[in-house]
């Protein structure tokens, strides 16, 4: 493992996480309660308290490139029990937003692909469409056979309608997504211009 260069922590990253999550990460004293209760801990590369520590140290790349930020399911156990009243789940959510914007996670990240596929069906129809979502996800994640055994019984019981329910105001919902994408693009553009200026990294 490369040593962390303490003097070169990304303070802008810390500020951004705190601003977006409205939490004070300095309050974390590393008791590990978040890790202790986390149901998804088995799937993490960094534990929840390690992520909090890495944020405190401004280790943007290590945090945003972690597997853990994608695996958190926001079950709120950490938030509920944090002795310092930090909304840890919200902090991790914010890191996931930043990881996504930074283009991390990759095309084989099932959690990311699932979220994208889900929102795609909402963008199209105004509501989510489970069958459409499954199909889209399988195609994108290149996992055509996962959960296939569930399909017959679900279809038989009429729990997976073939056609999506489309709402009348779907163009309005699509508008929300459209404006959101435009904002993201603008932000990305501003960032790439920023990147040309010299800035502290955590390599």
């Amino acid at each position: 493992m490369e040593p962390i260069q303490l003097g070169r922590g990304d303070t802008e990253f810390i500020r951004k996480v705190e601003e977006e999550s409205r939490q004070v990460v300095k309050k974390c004293y590393q008791c590990g309660n978040c890790t202790a209760g986390c149901p998804m801990s088995f799937s993490y590369d960094y534990t929840a308290n390690q992520l909090m520590r890495l944020i405190q140290l401004g280790q943007r790349e290590r945090v945003l490139k972690s597997r853990a930020v994608w695996m958190c399911v926001t079950c709120e156990t950490c938030t509920t029990r944090c002795p310092n009243e930090i909304d840890v789940a919200r902090v991790l959510d914010v890191c996931r937003h930043m990881a996504r914007k930074a283009g991390y996670g990759g095309v084989f990240n099932n959690m990311r692909v699932f979220a994208d596929s889900f929102l795609q069906t909402v963008r199209w129809n105004g509501k989510s469409h489970e069958l459409g979502l499954m199909a889209l996800f399988k195609m994108r994640a290149m996992k055509p056979f996962s959960d296939l055994s569930l399909a017959p019984s679900m279809l038989l019981k009429g729990k997976l309608p073939y056609l999506p329910h489309r709402i009348k105001g779907r163009s309005e919902v699509a508008g929300i997504f459209k404006r959101f994408s435009e904002q993201q693009l603008k932000e990305l553009h501003a960032q790439t211009t920023d990147d040309k200026k010299p800035a502290g990294g955590d390599k």
Binding site: E20, V73, T74, D93, V94, R96, H97, R100, M111, F114, A115, D116, F118, L119, V122, G126, K127, S128, I167, K168, G169, R170, V173, I176, F177, F180
Partner: peptide
Amino acid sequence: PDWNCCGSTPAHQVDHVL
């Protein structure tokens, strides 16, 4: 009337404002 999907977990995983 004519409600839409709340975005569920995927939406807050992408962005809180969205």
